[in-house]
Design a protein around this nucleic acid. Structure first.
Lengths: 338, 338
DNA sequence: ATCGGGCGTGTAATCGATTTCAAGACCACG
DNA sequence: CGTGGTCTTGAAATCGATTACACGCCCGAT
């Protein structure tokens, strides 16, 4: 592969002049510029980003560590992040943690080794020392979706509490009183928040949230399945199950179907995170929708602010309830939101 | 951030010795080794991968350019690729082409600028000069899923022809005669192959594939919707629609539902690519399943073979039909494959 | 004619690693 | 005591860029 030296030789100038042309510095004569450009063309020269990064101490690359690539919510987020970053001239390297803290740490470490300019993290656990150290060490960083309390880093996320309250009111209005939740890991902020919001919303209607109605999940389909099986085996099973993410909702659907039961006839189902497929499940699923596109854009904006020395801002966007048919809604309410 | 010089100073040795310890060269005295390790520890030193790459001319990074991150088939593939690469000590940078040739070329270019050790590509178009040049230029490369004819690069893919034949036989057995297909872009190999396999399989049963029954799609949901609308507006609409990927199947489902029709009562639906959600749609969808995990592993193996100078092998794996309920299958055949 | 100030250009230092080469220390053997 | 070999070690070159600095040149002002 041709290097800047080859270009300089071909154009009959020094490497400094080549570099100046490539970086559009002002003081280069038109003649030299033309010869350099011609040489670049005939050699098919492309600057070596590795060498450039070493010298300039910036890679124009952002790291994004997400909890699970197979989760459509996170791929939608990843996509909007990449798009926003590209518009600003940055590339992004995605690390998939698979909800495993040690994998998350692995990715953070290799990303740091590569000297990415900034890091977007949705922590799989609540206290990764790796992440803490990176933040303390001065790596530009912003949390997206989930965060780690006590680490001084901007957070970009959606606030699901009002939407959860809407959901509970909706379920109450449909006559449901026995409501269960499949929670996410207590180590994650979203895992905790959603249970708390649910509990508080229930309390507003004078409803309890017994321990038996809290299933401990890990945001993966299988845990949703197991939790739902336990619910269904209860002497007094819940009337509606609320899954704290879309994958666990999928697992719940599995478990319900395996028992030969039907949604919503035998049991209702609602989910946090809305994804295109929820329109086409049997039945379409009532869900809480997050503005992933805006979330990704805001996260990149905040991170680039940190990188370029501007004061960054935490951003909280609203999530909203999308009513469909999985909780025994009437035809009427169904149609209004389809 | 501490550099190797700082470590050398702290340990009271030269940078050469530090480097030797870090790369576990044999000839370092136990004392020096211990002091270096201690220095590394107190400074929290991590080698700069950028500098290392510049010197060694290898990044231990693979590039993966996929056609669409929002397509669960490709995220499953990306996941298995990353996993296999990690096991071999490589990182993966994913580029999402969004089915747009110019975006694909953008990613190939920046990946090459970053001097990745090898490239895994699922080309969004049939003739990217960018990709051709990279291959000719000697960049280790492997095509996965789709490929570009005439470019001498190993291909790792699933052969869907037998499964398509099985599908057509299955549909024929159910009494369907009017079969339509929503094709992928003719610029992609998978786009063409699936139509051809479908046409040939129909011919085996003496069935025609009229032009009116070929919808031109682009592997995205919206095109599936439009093609299906056209089918439904025909004087003699098809009895079954076969979508050449899962996203277009989703669009088809939309279109059918928008007309107030039901699957499979009013029209049947089948899809290429199987994804977990197909079990939970209304109704569960009969689909052709690809072995994404094995595909990803084989692709990485082949690419690393090229990189490390071993003779690489093209790999073709079988796809298989998964019968569910979206084509008017009886309860019996449904249960056997659920 | 002299001086000052741009402007265009090249030389060389630099970024943080790896690696070659030579040299010093030490030991064993004759 | 001299010789040769092994084992450790460090100095310096190198990878491919960017950039500070200096130099030569030309032009206009005095």
């Amino acid at each position: 592969m041709a290097s800047i030296k080859d270009v300089a030789a071909e154009a009959g100038v020094s490497v400094a002049t080549v570099s100046r042309v490539l970086n559009s510095h002002p003081s280069v004569s038109p003649g030299a510029r033309a010869r350099v450009l011609a040489a670049v063309d005939t050699l098919g020269y492309r600057p070596n980003a590795v060498a450039r990064s070493l010298r300039t101490d910036q890679t124009r690359t952002l790291g994004l560590v997400i909890s699970d690539v197979l989760n459509p919510y996170f791929t939608a987020l990843a996509r909007s992040v990449e798009e926003a970053a590209r518009a600003l001239g940055y590339s992004v390297i995605i690390g998939n943690a698979d909800e495993r803290p040690e994998l998350q740490d692995h990715h953070v470490r290799t990303l740091l080794d590569r000297r990415i300019d900034g890091l977007l993290v949705s922590p799989a656990d609540g206290s990764s020392p790796q992440v803490r150290d990176a933040a303390r060490g001065g790596t530009p960083m912003v949390f997206v979706d989930r965060w780690i309390p006590g680490v001084d880093v901007p957070v970009v996320r959606a606030d699901g509490c009002p939407a959860v309250r809407d959901l509970v009111a909706h379920l109450y209005g449909l006559g449901h009183r026995k409501l269960a939740i499949i929670a996410g890991p207590a180590a994650t902020t979203t895992g905790r928040e959603r249970v708390e919001a649910f509990r508080e919303a229930l309390a507003e209607h004078g409803l309890p949230l017994p321990d038996a109605y809290i299933g401990q999940g890990d945001f993966q389909a299988d845990s949703g399945r197991r939790a739902t099986e336990r619910f269904l085996g209860l002497g007094e099973p819940p009337e509606v199950v609320f899954a704290a993410d879309n994958l666990m909702a999928l697992g719940a659907l599995d478990a319900i179907r395996a028992r030969g039961m039907r949604v919503p006839r035998d049991i209702g189902l609602a989910a946090f995170d809305d994804i295109p497929w929820f329109l086409h499940t049997d039945p379409p699923i009532t869900a809480i929708s997050q503005p992933t596109g805006e979330l990704g854009r805001a996260a990149v904006r905040a991170l680039v602010d940190v990188i370029e020395g501007r004061p960054p801002q935490s951003v909280t966007l609203p999530a909203r309830l999308v009513v469909r048919r999985s909780c025994g809604e009437s035809e009427q309410s169904q149609r209004s939101d389809l």
